[in-house]
Amino acid sequence: MICPLANVEKVFDTEHGVVYQCSRQNCYWLEFQGTTTAFKISDLFLFKKRIDAIDIEAMLSESSRSYDFEIVMPFRTERCYLLNVSDILNLREILAGTKFMIQLNSEVKRCLRRGCVIA
């Protein structure tokens, strides 16, 4: 659960999950598969890289049972994700949207900062 004192704003959501930003603790909360996990920004981007790097084609073409799921345990979290192919696709969508919104926010802030100084 997210800390009740946290000052959170929604960054991005899909029907499968949501990411909030906490501007008090400078972190992100990922709600996915009924769990909530906090990430620092660099850890969140590393997590995204890890998820994007999973070889889905291999998972689909290998018939062995051990290829049906991917286990991901991000450092500095207590989470252990057990992901099938559709989970991975859903998670990718959430993380891609989140990253885009974080970058967009940063870009907007940069423009506003300029506006403040020059105007």
Binding site: Q21, S23, I41, N105, K109, R110
Partner: peptide
């Protein structure tokens, strides 16, 4: 929303 990206890296 606070810009955590720029806080982390330039």
């Amino acid at each position: 929303m606070k810009d955590l990206l720029k806080l982390k890296s330039s």
